Structures are given as structure tokens and as C-alpha cells.
Computed example of a mutant assay.
Amino acid sequence: MSEITKQKNNTKSEIIDALLHKNLYKMPDGRQFYEATEKELKHVLCSQSGSENLCTL
């Protein structure tokens, strides 16, 4: 696995971790987090956080 792929997977898993800490377990449309793109995950996290800092991930 390339370094870029590992880094992207780490970023996605970190976002998923943050969503789980907010007691969110699925995407709003019912999909599992691993089925969503990183961009979709960031959008959900940003909309749930209310923090501008998280919106700049």
C-alpha cells in the first residue's frame, strides 16, 4: 500500500473516529461510514460539530 493511500485511510478513519465520539454511527442516508467518501464524512462532521475549525479539515 502506498504512503498516500495509507495517509488517506488514516484521515478517513480519524474522521470516522470523531463521528463515533459524537455518537453518530451511520450516514444520514443510512449507509455505513466506510461506504462514504472522505468529503461526505467531513460534511457530516462539520454539520454536527457547529465548529468552524472542523469545517476546514
Rank of each mutant, 00 (worst) to 15 (best):
N53C: 01
K26M: 06
I4T: 14
Y34P: 07
G50K: 02
G30N: 10
K8F: 10
K12Y: 00
L24S: 04
T56D: 14
E40P: 01
R31W: 05
V44N: 04
E52Q: 07
K12L: 02
H21Y: 13
L54N: 05
E35H: 09
I4H: 12
Q32H: 14
E38M: 01
E52T: 07
L20M: 13
S47A: 13
K8S: 14
L45M: 09
S49M: 00
M27P: 01
H43G: 11
K42C: 12
F33Q: 03
Y25H: 15
K12R: 10
K39F: 11
L57C: 09
L41K: 03
L57I: 14
H43E: 15
K42H: 15
G50V: 03
K42M: 15
Y25C: 11
N23C: 09
E35C: 05
C55G: 04
L45F: 07
T56S: 14
E35Y: 06
N23A: 10
A18M: 05
G30R: 05
L57Y: 14
I16T: 00
V44C: 08
T37R: 07
K22Y: 11
L20Q: 09
M1Y: 07
T37E: 13
G50A: 00
E52H: 06
K22T: 09
D29L: 05
T56Y: 12
Q32T: 13
K6G: 08
M1E: 12
Y25D: 15
C46A: 13
L54C: 07
P28T: 00
S49E: 02
F33S: 06
I16M: 03
G50F: 02
D29H: 05
S47Y: 07
E38H: 04
Y25G: 07
N53R: 04
T56K: 15
C46M: 10
E52K: 00
C46F: 07
D17E: 11
M27N: 02
E14K: 13
E40A: 00
I4R: 14
D29V: 03
T37M: 03
Y34I: 11
N53S: 09
E52G: 01
T11H: 10
N9Y: 09
I4D: 15
I4Q: 14
L20A: 08
L19S: 06
F33N: 03
A18R: 06
Y25I: 12
K42Y: 15
T37F: 08
K22V: 08
G30H: 06
P28D: 05
K42I: 15
H21M: 11
Q48F: 01
G50L: 01
E40G: 04
H43K: 14
T11S: 11
Q7C: 11
P28G: 02
K26H: 11
N23F: 05
M1H: 07
S2I: 06
Q7R: 15
S2C: 04
Q32P: 07
L54M: 08
L19T: 00
K22L: 15
P28W: 00
L57E: 15
K42P: 07
N10M: 12
E3I: 11
E35F: 04
S13Y: 12
C55I: 04
L54F: 06
S13H: 13
M27L: 05
F33G: 02
M27V: 00
S2M: 03
I15K: 02
K42G: 08
S47M: 13
